[in-house]
Amino acid sequence: MDIVSPGFTGRRRSGTELPPGQYLTHEFPVLSAGPTPHILPEHWEFTVTTETGEVHRWDWATFTSLPAEEITKDLHCVTRWSKLGTDWKGVSLDTLLADVETSADFAMAHSYGGYTTNLPLDDLLDGQAWIAYEYDGEPLDPEHGGPARLLVPHLYLWKSAKWVRGLVLSDTDDLGFWESVGYHEYGDPWKEQRYAGD
């Protein structure tokens, strides 16, 4: 029952609202479930695989020649820190998926290093998600997911897969790395969907 608006349950810090249970940080904590992959741009590629097995491929040169957007968004990590007004540059998934023919409802993001996370395809469209390759005007550091990471800031940050290398579209909502061991399949910070069943 969402009878209380997020603004009411969120905490107010210097005029800024945070989702419930979050605290404000000015650091950029590095969370990692494994060793940091070091992928050279010339070895990097991004693929979108549809539910019929059709593969769309971008190498670094093709990818970075696509129209890019400057993005300023708040980040909310399920480990309870929030960082506000972060500046990114990246390619909208609307651009990358424009010529992809699909009727799939779900996407699994795959990363170099083996990480996965699942999302509804609708949450990657309509200006809600990017493949980001610059942070604060600089090429994205490997520790923050460079050369490129998924950025889906309206969901908890574990959905914004670092070192992303592709999306696999599917008719079924499979579970990713953290979702398969107790984390919420969707992860809306304003509804505090941290764990399965929240």
Binding site: P29, L31, A33, G34, P35, V78, Y183
Partner: peptide, 13 residues
């Protein structure tokens, strides 16, 4: 094993 704890869970590799 190599244990990663700065994460939403604990991962041993």
């Amino acid at each position: 094993a190599r244990l990663y704890v700065d994460a939403p869970g604990m991962v041993a590799r």
